[in-house]
């Protein structure tokens, strides 16, 4: 079960990785990350990794390294998207884990 979830997470990670668009700027990447993070937060499942990545992205942007800033913001978004997948998956399956006899 756990392996299956990890595999699913890994393949989503790969899929999301493929989505990264280098033509849109840091602002877009940042906005997309914030949107995904807000959804994860609302579901009570936010990851600290996203928080750190988005902070690092802002730092890179402030230092004028737009390429790195976009990369980091995209990664923050991917982590947030994974957190949302986790939240939905857990909402559906947590019962299976309860010790009941």
């Amino acid at each position: 079960m756990r392996k299956a979830i990890l595999l699913a997470l890994a393949s989503i990670l790969a899929a999301c990785g493929g989505e990264i668009q280098s033509d849109s700027g840091y602002e877009d990447a940042h906005a997309a990350a914030v949107t995904a993070m807000d959804i994860a937060t609302e579901k009570g499942h936010a990851w600290t990794t996203s928080d750190q990545l988005i902070e690092d992205a802002a730092k890179a942007a402030a230092e004028g390294d737009e390429t790195l800033a976009i990369l980091l913001a995209d990664e923050a978004r991917v982590h947030a998207e994974l957190a949302v997948v986790q939240a939905d998956n857990e909402a559906a399956t947590w019962h299976d884990r309860v010790i009941s006899e």
Partner: peptide, 17 residues
């Protein structure tokens, strides 16, 4: 509360349980 305890969270994907 029970759901919280038995739900995996975080990048490490662990539940309290």
């Amino acid at each position: 509360g029970k759901q919280f305890y038995y739900s995996r969270r975080g990048q490490l994907n662990f539940a309290c349980s």
